[in-house]
Structure formats: C-alpha cells, structure tokens
Design a protein around this nucleic acid. Structure first.
Lengths: 142, 142
DNA sequence: TTAAGTGCAAAGGTTTTGCGAAACT
DNA sequence: AGTTTCGCAAAACCTTTGCACTTAA
C-alpha cells in the first residue's frame, strides 16, 4: 500500500536528505494522487495543514522526486506544469483542452514505435511522452 | 514547390490580413524550414535582412499561422517553443536531450492508439503529440 | 486614405534562486 | 551542534500586450 512511499523515504534518508513534515506531506500527495496536480494544487491542498507552506518548497520537493526518478514533470501547453508522481514511467495521457484534466488510460506498449524512431533517426531513445488532446466527457456534455 | 506558401498568402489576403515584407519572410521561413526553429532562431536568421525586425513580430506571425491551422507550436520542456510550420498535422518527433535538436521520422499511423484512448476515457480526441527523447547521433558520439 | 502591422518597451505569469531563520538528525 | 531545509522576496525567463508610428492595399 504505502510501500513505495516508505521506499522513497528510506532512499531519501540514505542520501542524507531530511524528511521534514512539509516534505513528507508534499511527496505523499505527489506519489499517491491520481489527479496529476500542479504546483498550485499541491500548495492549496496542503496549506490548511501547513499554513506557512511555500510554493518554493513544493517546487523543490517535486524537483527532488524528479531527480530520484520517482516523478515525471508534465509541462503543459499553457506554460504550467503538472506532476505525475504515481507512475513515473513514461505512459500516454489524455488531456482535456477545456478543463485541462489529465488522465491515464491503459495503452498497449509503444516499444515498436520507439524502435522505429531509433532506427529511422539514429537516436538513442531514453523515454517518450504521448498526449492525446480533446474534450473530456464532462466538457463535451456541457 | 511553393504552392502551399502561395495558398497561405492568398488565404491571408482573403481575410484582410496584409502581407508585409516581415510577415512574408517569417512565414516563408516557418513554412519551409525542416529545423523546427524557435522564435529566437527565426529572429536571428531574418535580422540581417530586416534589421528592425522584432521578436514580437515573430511571435505574432507564428500565432497567426497557428490560428490558420498552418503551424503547430511545440512547447519544450525548458519552457521555450519550437515551431513546426512545414507539416502542421500531428506527427511524432525525436528530440535530443543534449542539443535540443528536433527531428521528424516516418512512423506508422497512430489511429488505433487514438481510438484506444477515446474508448478507454470517453474523450473526444482532436489531436496528439508524441515525442521520443534521447541523444542524437552527433551527441552520443561526442 | 485608412485600417492593419511593426517595433519598442513594459507587463504578465510561472519557475528558480538567494539568504536569514528555523528545525531535523 | 551542525547541516539541511523552509519560506519569503527578488530575480530570471519567455511570451504577451499597449501604444505611437509606419505602411500595405
């Protein structure tokens, strides 16, 4: 259940990073949320629990997780960022053009495409990002 | 060869947009370049020909082409933008993590994935973006 | 002639950074 | 006790906007 969270915390301590209450709260939210929250959402959701929490701390904690390979940043068209800390491995998303909702979905593996890209270009491919854009059910029904 | 450029120019005139020398130069560069240039590159390349050219004009011309459906903006991880005005339809790219080169490659159609995304999420999908990240031949050999 | 475009400079918005104060180990 | 981290505020960065001057049609 919270095994992954504990592993991340152990890994932090091993690297002489401290597990402060703010850091713990931010990384727990980031690692468990399905909503692909942005810095602002993380900040707002934890403000009640930590009235002095700053956006800078949110950014720094997310960058730390990203550097550990435990979170992917998803820069959006509008210049904002959304975090995917629940499943940091590359996977496709659908993104609503109106409400900016970001969702996962089950997709077949893209290895064949990656190999096509590598052989066609000579690149050494390390990752990918695939977003489908459109309108979510909520938005195209209202 | 330059048929598409002429079609775009006709379309501009029909909509009471004017074809100024700056606008013509920017859109010609954007519509023909294979290099996926950013605003800065467009600006630098045309500066010699138009010493008073401004970045604002580059941005505005690109936005105009984008609104006509003749150009796709590719926001990058680092917050900058690259333009794809040569083939505005969605298609995959490979992007070098070191030199930030952006390249096209021939890829099989992704319709099946798009249908998977639509049926799995209920979204009405209108487009996609697929980037593979890695090191280009120049960068992994040096 | 006149409405649209250019270019400069300022504004806007998000993310990053510097640094003194606080706090984890 | 000694570092790390926090949080505030300022800086940095790219992009957009406002406006007077210029110019295409």
């Amino acid at each position: 259940m919270d095994t992954r969270l504990n592993l991340i915390i152990d890994s932090l301590r091993q690297r002489d990073f401290r597990v402060t209450p703010q850091r713990y709260a931010v990384l727990k939210l980031l690692c468990t949320s399905k909503a692909h929250p942005g810095p602002g959402e993380v900040y707002e959701q934890l403000r009640q629990q930590f009235p002095t929490l700053s956006l800078a701390t949110v950014y720094k904690t997310a960058a730390l997780l990203r550097d550990m390979g435990e979170l992917t940043e998803l820069p959006m068209k509008d210049g904002t960022t959304r975090y995917d800390g629940r499943n940091p491995a590359p996977h496709p998303h659908v993104i609503c053009n109106r409400c900016l909702k970001v969702m996962d979905f089950d997709a077949p593996p893209l290895d064949f495409l990656q190999q096509e890209a590598a052989s066609a270009t000579g690149f050494h491919i390390a990752g990918f990002r695939l977003d489908f854009f459109g309108l979510c059910p909520d938005c195209h029904n209202n």
